[in-house]
Design a protein around this nucleic acid. Structure first.
Lengths: 196, 196
DNA sequence: AAATAACTAGACCGACCTGTATACTTCTGC
DNA sequence: GCAGAAGTATACAGGTCGGTCTAGTTATTT
């Protein structure tokens, strides 16, 4: 195995950063939790910020993969029109994630909150994830005929983010239910071939 | 004046916390910026967390007042149905705030991100603000006949939060435009007496 | 005018932070 | 089997953190 320690460090850091925040989580805690020497960390990463970005990149891939997989699994159980099933299933996948045991909001929204400067590499990494999330939403709308697809993608992205924030900030895990309803309303409004 | 220093400290802290984050902003920087002695800070506040909460409470009042005022001002220029004008004006007020010079997201979303534990006093203060925000949205819907008002309030609240997050995390200030469109779609869908 | 409250300036504390250096050990590829 | 990479353990540097303390100064109130 090339560098299992590197992977172990990222996994440990991810759990701690997500649960407690980036600035609140010290290097020493990560090292103690992972059982790894400090020298090893700085062998694989140039700085804490570098570790944060690597953590965000892994989280990005894992979360998108999870949402994609869960969405596909949930498409068949949708009761709506076939072409809308993928995007509706996406909101169910979102609900599963949000109501799962370990949910502390979106790591990327949290990251951009802790590193507010728009030119900060960490902030930019968070932005990158949100762009990929929008691409995922767009990919689930390929079969849907919309009067303005770009606009609908933006609207659904906003609704998804709002649901995540609502669930975390207000500790109300049922926000995805309302997000799905809002998404349906948007799709009804802009779908050219919609049948209730 | 009872305690101008206390007000000065809160004002200074608010600007710095908002721009740079809570944990990233040290007590010493606030004191230097405000030109106030450390002893004075700990005369008015028991701890940094106490100052943070006082800051959040002031911010809560100021932001809600600003949004209420701006909403009232923007009601007359709405082109939609009269009864929907208040809530539509709210999304324009949101847009004015988001596109204003100094915007670093929602201080309460950021706060709950930095203090993720749901029982943390700071997290709870952020939650409180979001509840008041929902009350504001609800108050703008009094004249609107809706099939399920509670549900619509939640949906609009989610859309508003999504717009704020989108503007900050993705650095795209036009998110409120799409939020307003989504809000219109939701209202169209649930409004009993809607006419386009 | 006296007393009390609010304030300044700055030293200081212990804890914690990121990151580096030293010295040694284990693993791994050729 | 040996060289080099990757690892451990730990001390340490240099700084910042929140918070306390002392001592003296200004304001306010009665």
């Amino acid at each position: 195995m090339a560098s299992s320690k590197r992977a172990l460090l990222i996994d440990t850091a991810q759990a701690l950063f997500y649960k407690n925040g980036f600035r609140a989580t010290g290097i020493d805690l990560i090292l103690a939790e992972a059982g790894v020497a400090k020298k090893t960390l700085y062998h694989h990463f140039t700085s804490k910020d570098d570790l944060i970005i690597a953590t965000l990149m892994q989280r990005d891939q894992q979360l998108l993969l999870r949402l994609k997989t869960d969405t596909q699994r949930l498409i068949p159980v949708q009761t709506c029109q076939t072409k809308l099933a993928p995007i509706m299933a996406f909101f169910d996948a979102l609900a599963e994630w949000i109501t799962s045991e370990q949910f502390f909001g979106c790591m990327f929204i949290n990251g951009s909150a802790e590193y507010p400067r728009h030119d900060d590499p960490i902030h930019l990494a968070c932005r990158e994830h949100k762009l990929l999330m929008m691409q995922l939403i767009e990919s689930l709308l390929v079969e849907v005929e919309l009067s303005d697809k770009k606009s609908v993608v933006r609207q659904l992205s906003i609704i998804a983010d709002g649901a995540i924030v609502g669930a975390h900030t207000m500790s109300e895990s049922d926000s995805t239910r309302f997000a799905k309803i809002a998404a349906q309303a948007v799709l009804t409004h802009f779908c050219l071939n919609y049948t209730q």
